[in-house]
Amino acid sequence: MVTISNAHDGLIHDAVLDYYGKRLATCSSDKTIKIFQVEGDNYKLIDTLRGHEGPVWQVSWAHPKFGVILASCSYDGKVLIWKEEGDTWSNIAEHSVHQASVNSISWAPSEYGALLLCTSSDGKCSVVEFQADGSQKTIVWQAHAIGVNAGTWAPPQKENISERRIVTGGCDNLVKIWRFDAVQNTYVEEEALAGHTDWVRDVAWSPSLLSKYYIASASQDRTVIIWTKEVGEKKGAWKKQLLRHDKFPDVCWRASWSMSGNVLAISGGDNKVTLWKENLGGEWEEAGEVDQ
C-alpha cells in the first residue's frame, strides 16, 4: 500500500491516479499540485506545479489520447491545464470565466472530445472545449443559486452519442441534471432533484450503463442519496433512495464510483471512508471501511 505523508504544506483537497494508475496528482491549500510516480509500494515526486493563487481544490487527468494532460481548479477562480512533454510539466491553457472559487472540474467522456466541466461558487457552470488548434470554446450557464459545488458527466450513451448529460450539486441543496442542447448550444435543465437539506457537496454519476443510471449525491446534511432511473425511461422517473437509513456520523464530502459502478466510496467529515455495494435485493450494504 502506498502511503504518502505530508506531501503538502497545507490541507490536501484531492488526489487522483491517472488512466494507467502510474501517476498520482495531489493538490492542496498550499497552492501547489504535485505529481508522483507510483510503482508498487514506492513513489517518487516528479514535479510540483505552481501557478494557482489560491488553494487548489481538484485535479483531473484527461483521457490519455489527448496526451498527458492534467486540469486543476482553484479558489482563485481559475482552471489551469497542464501538460507533460518530455519530462517537464508546463501550463498550456487557462480558463478563467468564473468570478469565484471553482470547486470542481470533470473531463467529459473522451468520445465527446476534450471537454472540461467546471463548477463554481459564483453559481455558474462552464464547459470548455479545447480544440485541436489550441482555441477554446466555452459555454457558461447559471446552474445553482448560491454556488455549484460539484459536477460530473454522465457516461456516454453508445446509441446516441450527441446526448450529453451533466449532473451538478449546489448550495441550493438540489441535484440538477442538464442536457446539452445542440440547437441553443447550451445546457438545459432536465431535472432538479430535491432531497437534501443542506449543501450538496459531491455528485457522482455511475459509469455503469448496465440497467440503470445511478447518481450518488453526498451532502452536508450527513446523508448520501442514490438516484436511480431505468435506462430509457422518460423524464421525471428518478427514484431516490438513502444510501444509509440513518444519518452518517458527520457530513459527507465525496462520493466515488468504481470503474464499473459496483462499489461506491463515501468519505465523510469523521475522516472515514465507507464502501457500499448494492445487494441482489437492491439494498445498499456497507462493504468496507477505511480509517485514516
Partner: peptide, 12 residues
C-alpha cells in the same frame, strides 16, 4: 459561498 474544503476523500 465557497464550500469548506473536504477533510478527506476517496477516489476509485
Amino acid at each position: 459561498s465557497t464550500p469548506v474544503p473536504k477533510g478527506c476523500g476517496a477516489i476509485w
